[in-house]
Amino acid sequence: MWPDRRIQELFGIALPIVQAPMAGAHDAALAIAAARAGALGSLPCAMLSPQQAREQVAQYRAATDAPVNLNFFCHRPAAADPAREAAWRERLRPYYLEFGLDPAAASAAAARAPFDEAWCALVEELRPQVVSFHFGLPAPELLARVRASGARAIASATTVAEAVWLEQRGCDAIVAQGNEAGGHRGVFLEGEDVSTQAGLFALLPRIADAVTVPVIAAGGVFDGRGIAAAFALGAAAVQVGTAYLFCPEATIAPLHRRALSAGEGDDTALTNVFSGRPARGIVNRAMRELGPLSPLAPAFPGAGAALAPLRARAEPAGDDDFMSLWSGQARRAHALGAFELTRELARQAQDLLDRG
C-alpha cells in the first residue's frame, strides 16, 4: 500500500513514478518500457517537430495502452542580441583556433521550440492523458485548451513561490524540482536566483504545505530510499531522470554514458554555457574554463550554437570537453533496462514503506 495514491488515481498509473522527460536523451522506447512497468511514460517534445512527436506517440500507443505524458518547454524566445553573440564568439575564439576552425563560421544550435498554437493543436489531436511544462506555463488560453482536451496539466517548480503560482493557474499537480536535479532548472519567475535555491528535501515539505494539489518529487531520487523519503516529506510520487540514463533504451552519446559511469554525482555543477539557461551537468573543460555560469553566454537556447562546431570536432576523437553531460547530483551505475529499473525502484521503496 502506497501512503498517498493521488497521483496514481489522477494519471491512471500503477506506480507513483514518473519517468522524467529528458529532451535529446531518449525516445519512445524508454517511455514504453517504463510505462509497461507501471510508471507514467513521458515523451519530451521540445526538440521535436510536431510530425516527429506524432510519430513518437503512435509508436508508444502501438506498444502499450498506458497513459502518456507529453512534455513541452514554455520559455520566451530571446530577442536577437548581436553584441552578446559577438562577445561569446570572441570568448570561444581560442578554442576554434586550437581545433583549426574558423571563428567566424556560422552554426546552428539544437532547436528547442516553446509551446505554441501548433503544439496546442497537436495536443488536441493526440489527446495525451498528461501534458507537462517546463519553464512555467503557456498563455492562459492555450492552457485552457490543453485542459479542455482532457489532459491533466503539470509543471515544474523550483521554489515555493513558483509552486503557488502554478496551482493558482490551474495545474493538477506540481513537480518540485530540487537543486540537485540533472538537466535544466525549471526557473520561470523573475528574480529567482538559482544559487539560493533549495535541495529537494528542503524544498519538498514547504511546497507540500503551500499547495493543495499533489506534489511530485524530483532531484536526487535514484533508489527506493529516496522514494520512501519523498513520501515521508509530503510527495505523492517521484520523478526519476538520471537513473534512466543508464538504461540501454536511453539515446545519449557513448561519451555521456562513460562520464555518467565514472562517478556518483559529486562531479556536477550548474552551468549556462551549453544553452544559456542554468542546467546541472558533469563538469568538463567547457564548464571549468567558460563558467560554469558565464555572463557572456547568449540567452536560451542560443549559447549552444557557437559550441556545436567544437563538440563536432572533439567528440569523434573521444573528447567530451564541449558536450553537455546532464546529470543529477546522485546517481549509481546499473545495467537494468527501463522496465526492470522501474520495478526495482518500486520494490525497494515498498519494502521500506512496509517496515514503517
Rank of each mutant, 00 (worst) to 15 (best):
L97I: 07
L97H: 08
D116R: 06
R112V: 14
Y96G: 05
P94L: 02
C120H: 06
P114R: 14
D102N: 13
V123G: 04
A105D: 06
W119I: 07
S107K: 04
W119K: 05
A109I: 01
A105H: 01
V123L: 05
D116Y: 14
A106Q: 11
L101F: 01
A121M: 09
A113H: 11
E117F: 06
L122V: 13
F99R: 10
A113I: 15
L97T: 08
C120A: 13
P94G: 00
A111G: 02
D102K: 12
W119N: 10
A106T: 08
A106W: 00
E98D: 12
A109L: 03
D102T: 06
A111M: 11
P94N: 03
A111S: 08
P114Q: 14
A105Y: 02
A121C: 09
A109F: 00
L122M: 11
S107L: 03
A108V: 15
A106H: 02
A118V: 14
F115L: 14
L97F: 03
E98N: 02
A113F: 12
L97Q: 05
A108H: 11
A118F: 01
L97A: 03
P114S: 13
P94E: 02
A106I: 07
S107E: 10
A106K: 13
P114Y: 15
F115P: 04
A110M: 10
A110W: 03
A108P: 01
E117R: 10
F99Q: 12
L97G: 00
L101H: 01
R112C: 14
A110S: 04
P114G: 15
F99M: 12
C120V: 08
D102H: 09
Y95D: 05
L97C: 01
L101E: 06
L122W: 03
Y96F: 09
P94F: 04
A109H: 00
A108Q: 10
A111H: 04
G100R: 10
F99N: 06
A109Q: 08
A118C: 08
A108F: 14
L101V: 11
A113T: 15
L122H: 03
A111D: 01
G100M: 07
P114V: 15
V123C: 08
G100Q: 06
V123Y: 12
D116L: 13
L122T: 10
P103D: 02
D116C: 14
E117D: 14
